[in-house]
Simulated scan of single mutants.
Amino acid sequence: MRPVFFLSDFGLQDPYVGVVKAVLAQKAPGIGVVDLAHDLPPQDLRRAAYALFEAVPYLPEGSVLLAVVDPGVGTARRAVAALGRRAYVGPDNGLFTLAWLLDPPRRAYALDRVKPPRPQGLDPLPGWRPGAFTFHGRDRFAPAAAHLALGLPPEALGEEVPVESLLRLPLALTPGPEGEILTFDRFGNAITTLLQAPLGGWVEVAGRRVPIRRTFGEVGVGEGVAYLGSAGLLEIALNRGSAREAWGLEEGMPVRLTGP
């Protein structure tokens, strides 16, 4: 049985995460489920795409990645399973854009044959019809992820679709010199689309020149610093503060590498 790695923007105040995991356990008893993140900013596809990019290199080959950040749930957007060295299950909305730069899908399937789970061991309640069009994490993605975790054929999930038709976000990672702010982490550090952080150089953002160093400790408290982050992308931070708040940074702002 293959492990399932689960990421969402569901948060932990509601039972949504637990219900999805209950369906996984119902469909594949004994399944191993690892939570990657659930407190991502709601409906923020760029932030979720980055989180998957950061995680995918460390997930075992053959594992199943279940990701649900889905602003278009209930619309005509497709539900899909895509197969590369890992299996990806989620909405076809660009969520996997950056992960697929590292692990391109070779086949993909629309989840149009997936049947939603049925409530278990309950007495009938007059007028009650469980199910909805807005919880595909429970009704479509969890059953599909369990199916793949069991090693069952993906063709049973639905019709095969061309991998070229899978949606991607308009994002590009580049060595520079120009890029943009991709997203922010919870500390207010700006994660950029730049793949290089040349020591001794600078990065320009929002009218500022920020020095590129190895780590925060090489600048004083309250000073700006840029460095190569844990995912291999240049990040811009304020030592002991939030660069996002202090400098009014936003997603999509241009950044540029410059020399000494």
Results as ranks from 00 to 15, higher is better:
residue 135 F to Y: 10
residue 124 P to I: 05
residue 144 A to G: 14
residue 73 V to G: 07
residue 116 P to R: 05
residue 72 G to R: 09
residue 52 L to C: 12
residue 99 A to Q: 13
residue 81 A to Y: 01
residue 154 P to D: 10
residue 70 D to I: 12
residue 152 L to N: 08
residue 52 L to D: 12
residue 50 Y to W: 15
residue 79 A to K: 03
residue 115 K to A: 06
residue 152 L to C: 00
residue 125 L to W: 01
residue 148 L to N: 11
residue 151 G to Y: 06
residue 61 E to S: 09
residue 107 R to E: 15
residue 128 W to R: 10
residue 77 R to F: 01
residue 135 F to L: 06
residue 108 A to F: 01
residue 84 G to M: 02
residue 106 R to H: 03
residue 123 D to N: 04
residue 62 G to W: 10
residue 60 P to Q: 11
residue 138 R to K: 13
residue 97 T to C: 04
residue 67 A to N: 04
residue 135 F to C: 07
residue 88 Y to Q: 14
residue 154 P to F: 02
residue 109 Y to C: 12
residue 58 Y to C: 00
residue 131 G to Q: 07
residue 79 A to R: 04
residue 76 A to D: 15
residue 55 A to D: 11
residue 128 W to K: 10
residue 143 P to R: 06
residue 74 G to V: 04
residue 63 S to Q: 11
residue 151 G to M: 08
residue 72 G to T: 09
residue 52 L to P: 13
residue 100 W to T: 07
residue 64 V to E: 08
residue 106 R to M: 02
residue 90 G to T: 03
residue 87 A to T: 15
residue 139 D to W: 02
residue 137 G to H: 13
residue 80 V to E: 08
residue 89 V to A: 04
residue 119 P to M: 09
residue 66 L to Q: 03
residue 147 H to V: 11
residue 94 G to S: 10
residue 82 A to D: 08
residue 83 L to F: 12
residue 99 A to L: 15
residue 94 G to R: 08
residue 53 F to M: 14
residue 117 P to W: 07
residue 107 R to L: 13
residue 113 R to T: 05
residue 67 A to R: 07
residue 153 P to C: 09
residue 105 P to R: 06
residue 89 V to K: 05
residue 88 Y to F: 15
residue 78 R to L: 05
residue 63 S to C: 15
residue 151 G to N: 14
residue 67 A to F: 01
residue 118 R to K: 12
residue 63 S to D: 11
residue 131 G to I: 04
residue 61 E to T: 12
residue 149 A to N: 13
residue 58 Y to L: 07
residue 71 P to R: 04
residue 104 P to K: 00
residue 92 D to T: 01
residue 125 L to S: 02
residue 61 E to G: 11
residue 58 Y to E: 07
residue 111 L to H: 05
residue 110 A to M: 05
residue 92 D to V: 01
residue 152 L to W: 05
residue 137 G to P: 14
residue 154 P to Q: 10
residue 63 S to G: 15
residue 101 L to W: 10
residue 55 A to F: 01
residue 111 L to Q: 07
residue 52 L to I: 14
residue 89 V to N: 01
residue 92 D to R: 02
residue 88 Y to K: 06
residue 71 P to K: 01
residue 140 R to V: 15
residue 135 F to D: 09
residue 106 R to Y: 00
residue 68 V to H: 02
residue 152 L to T: 00
residue 71 P to I: 09
residue 71 P to G: 03
residue 127 G to C: 06
residue 100 W to Y: 08
residue 131 G to E: 08
residue 94 G to L: 13
residue 131 G to A: 02
residue 154 P to N: 10
residue 133 F to Q: 14
residue 132 A to Q: 04
residue 54 E to C: 11
residue 65 L to Y: 08
residue 69 V to S: 13
residue 130 P to S: 10
residue 108 A to W: 02
residue 143 P to E: 13
residue 120 Q to M: 05
residue 95 L to V: 07
residue 120 Q to V: 09
residue 125 L to Q: 08
residue 78 R to Y: 00
residue 102 L to A: 03
residue 151 G to K: 13
residue 51 A to C: 11
residue 128 W to L: 15
residue 85 R to P: 08
residue 110 A to L: 14
residue 97 T to I: 07
residue 148 L to T: 09
residue 60 P to N: 13
residue 142 A to I: 09
residue 152 L to I: 01
residue 133 F to K: 15
residue 97 T to F: 03
